[in-house]
């Protein structure tokens, strides 16, 4: 199987789906001649032309609204917001409009659209270009929030996202763009709303998303040598969240740690933990459940401070050890 990057995997999905379905088109800032701020849409203007790789003015609210309007008329728009932070400029259209249309109009409207948004810290982009806002988006029923951690998942989930009849927020992580992995060249989809156990283990369940999955896997590999077997669960879809897979995992391991880059207060770890402690599997829990979120601060610019603002492998390792060793 060919090895390609996370970024190339997403491009491949867009490319193949645009070949397969002429209703699919891209819109966003600098996605044409520039090839996208991260180069993700590089070459697509030449291949598909200006009509289907539609460069827009810097108008995030109307980029999302344009996708909504086109989707209502049966198109399959894939909009790009250059940074996830900019979703806040378009949140009315996404949260008050797209998310509610199917419901508010009594099931008579569908809004099949995807909004891509690279989030996360690690690139020195400072406070307004580094946020992880998936927990915010999880507050809007009607939206689907996808958050892939590998090239394989990124392609399969993107194909599912475009074919889904609902508005999908496709959250990418900037730091993962260069990560390589095996990706089939052909067409395949990954079901939305289904978590994956990325690594099985008997001692503790670590639930993590996007780049934290990779960090958790590295820590799991290291601890395995000491005989601590970590199970890493990747929700892949944040909304709707596959709590069933998480509950089953915790029932097996008896311990839980949730890791995300989003700010800890109000972060989705709280949701996962509430689902676990509020369920009958609470009886199986052997240690206090733990969460490790980003610090409750804006992401700083300085490299050392930026790193310290979000969970690192050493932090994850420390939390796992504390849980396994029965410390509080």
């Amino acid at each position: 199987m060919p090895e390609i990057t996370y970024l190339e995997a997403i491009r491949q999905a867009l490319w193949q789906e645009m070949k397969r379905d002429e209703r699919v088109f891209l819109l966003g800032e600098d996605i044409g001649r520039y090839g996208g701020a991260f180069g993700l849409t590089h070459g697509m203007l030449d291949e598909f032309g200006e009509e289907r790789v539609l460069e827009t003015p810097i108008s995030e609210a109307t980029i999302v609204a344009t996708a909504i309007g086109a989707a209502l008329l049966g198109m399959r728009p894939v909009a790009e917001l250059m940074f996830m932070d900019f979703v806040l400029l378009s949140l009315d259209q996404l949260a008050n409009q797209a998310a509610k249309m199917h419901f508010m109009f009594g099931g008579r409207a569908t809004v099949p659209m995807v909004v891509r948004m690279p989030g996360g810290s690690g690139s020195g982009a400072a406070s307004q270009h580094s946020q992880s806002l998936e927990s915010v988006l999880m507050q809007f029923p009607g939206l689907i929030v996808i958050n892939p951690s590998t090239p394989y998942d990124a392609k399969g989930l993107m194909l599912s996202a475009i074919r889904n009849p609902n508005p999908v927020c496709f959250v990418e992580h900037k730091v993962l763009y260069k990560m390589k992995g095996e990706v089939p060249e052909g067409d395949y989809t990954i079901p939305i709303g289904v978590a994956e156990i990325k690594r099985p283990g008997r001692d503790i369940t670590v639930v993590a998303n996007n780049v934290m999955v990779i960090k958790a896997l590295n820590v799991a590999e290291k601890l395995s040598k000491e005989g601590i077997e970590v199970e890493v669960v990747d929700p892949r879809t944040m909304l709707p969240l596959d709590t069933e897979t998480i509950l089953q995992s915790v029932a097996r391991t008896g311990r839980l740690l949730v890791v995300h880059e989003a700010c800890q207060t109000g972060g989705w770890a709280g949701e996962v933990i509430a689902s676990v402690v509020g369920s009958p599997i609470f009886d199986y829990i052997d240690a206090p459940v733990r969460r490790l979120g980003g610090k409750d601060i804006p992401i700083p610019y300085n490299r050392i401070l930026e790193k310290a603002a979000v969970p690192q492998e050493a932090d994850i390792e420390q939390e796992i050890r504390a849980s396994v060793e029965g410390r509080i």
Binding site: T62, A65, G69, A70, L72, L73, Q97, M101, M104
Partner: peptide, 23 residues
């Protein structure tokens, strides 16, 4: 449909117009 957010429909007309043109 009608919109409860003042001005919420104005930018959606861009998308409807765009789709009409594309189609």
């Amino acid at each position: 449909g009608a919109n409860g957010i003042v001005g919420g429909g104005i930018p959606q007309a861009v998308g409807v117009g765009l789709a009409l043109k594309m189609q």
